[in-house]
Design a protein around this nucleic acid. Sequence first.
DNA 1: TCTTTTATTGAGACGGTTTATCAATTTCAA
DNA 2: TTGAAATTGATAAACCGTCTCAATAAAAGA
Lengths: 143, 143
Amino acid sequence: MSKHVKEMGVLKEHLGKHQLKFTRQRELILDAFLKQEHITAEEMYHQLARKDPHLGLATIYRTLNLFCEAGLAQARHFGTQTQYDNISHKGHHDHLICTGCGKIVEFENCDIERLQEEVASRNGFTIHTHRLELYGLCSPCRR
Amino acid sequence: MSKHVKEMGVLKEHLGKHQLKFTRQRELILDAFLKQEHITAEEMYHQLARKDPHLGLATIYRTLNLFCEAGLAQARHFGTQTQYDNISHKGHHDHLICTGCGKIVEFENCDIERLQEEVASRNGFTIHTHRLELYGLCSPCRR
DNA sequence: TCTTTTATTGAGACGGTTTATCAATTTCAA
DNA sequence: TTGAAATTGATAAACCGTCTCAATAAAAGA
Ligand SMILES: [Mn+2]
Ligand SMILES: [Mn+2]
Ligand SMILES: [Zn+2]
Ligand SMILES: [Zn+2]
């Protein structure tokens, strides 16, 4: 009956490897997190206040950061607040962001990634991560 | 005898167009800024403390933001603090950042830029700005 | 030049976001 | 079931950058 069995497994494996514990809060937060594409800690805090009014904001932050370490989430800095990006069932991707309505479109482009590697190696670098964000207007916002 | 005549002209033109005034502080900060490739407000604050111990941090922030509006600088968010990028004598560019030693290498790649446009138009977007940062290790840091 | 208007400055208060602290509680392996 | 160790929630603190406001400086006008 429980949802997100696979991701819950990923989390438990990470917990096991690092002597961390599986708690009611971590389960609750993961369930809520996986229903979203991108979410901030505050948004999650308000959203979960109904299910558990005692859940603290610090716990949300700690847990979302834990998900990042476990490879389920990735922190992004589109605006003023950190957005936690659900990457559990998709690989790496980049973003198109509409400065009009705030819409975020995810994309992947191997050609760009390949050219990035080229630039890096030409400069003697080995890339670990990168960030590519395209800001502009979506077609509804353009008129 | 004064340096940075051309950039000082760009600043004065911007000031004129916006009913702003040319001050001793703005001249001092521009001179210092143009000697750098990337600098934070705090760094500039400490650096200028010798020349003018009364110069306030708020003035530095205000002035660097003014340079951005005048097209002399561009704000970047590599790490925790905002880096002001000197773009007075170069056009748009992106960055390679070494997570080992903090070295920053600037680059331009038209092929990547073209592919970005392609991705955008395929999604109905018109791009205004973008941010591309490659994080990794430079060759000295790799061993 | 002298006067008047208007923008700027510096000091510090303030605001928003995230992390640190710590006593009480919960987890989990033995 | 016990006890060591991790976690939690409340809140303080850190951090970075902006705002406020009275004093000052710049530039436009007479
Ligand atoms: Mn995403
Ligand atoms: Mn640069
Ligand atoms: Zn839009
Ligand atoms: Zn390096």
